[in-house]
Amino acid sequence: MQSIDTWYCTYKGKLLAIACQRGYSHEEAKDIVQQFFLDLMQKETSEVKNPEAFLLTAFKHRLIDLYRTNHRPLISDSYAIPPSALEIIEELETNMELVNRLEDAYKRLPARYRRVIYLKYYQGLSTEQIAESTGFTCQTVYNNLSKGIRQLRLNLENKKPFSKLASIFLSLFP
């Protein structure tokens, strides 16, 4: 099956990483992934619509089976299986609060950061293309992106840094 080949090329690393996360060594994990794809070739997969989600679920079941038969590394549920791209998009579509928080964090960025982020993630320009269209050097664009993303993630973590600052000031000058 041609599609299994492609799946192997695109998802083997992720599955291996999941196995490692569950306590298998790198070598053991390689074998498990190999065997998993070999077994998959025997199965009917022509109706799989979303390969990533399908593979993640099937692989999770495989790990549970292995645990049951061999009593090998304990599967802790504290490690969640990372969501597939489709699941991330579905989450964004249903969770408006998440999107609004992201927007809020974005709007609080300085203009120079917002500009490069907008060009990259909305208009889809590469770093070189942004450099070309803005006249900055590639290094400047890269630095602005890097700092912008770091700031954005900070903004997301502490929702209102200014209110915190304000409270500090208030406590200093009662």
């Binding site: 992720k14 990483a17 996360q21 790198h26 791209a85 964004l92 579509e93």
Partner: peptide, 22 residues
């Protein structure tokens, strides 16, 4: 680098989130 799974997952969420929000 299987130990990077969580970082990759988080980065992917951020990229898709940013694109979606914008």
């Amino acid at each position: 680098h299987p130990e990077e799974l969580a970082v990759i997952g988080e980065a992917r969420r951020s990229v898709l989130g940013l694109k979606y929000m914008l």
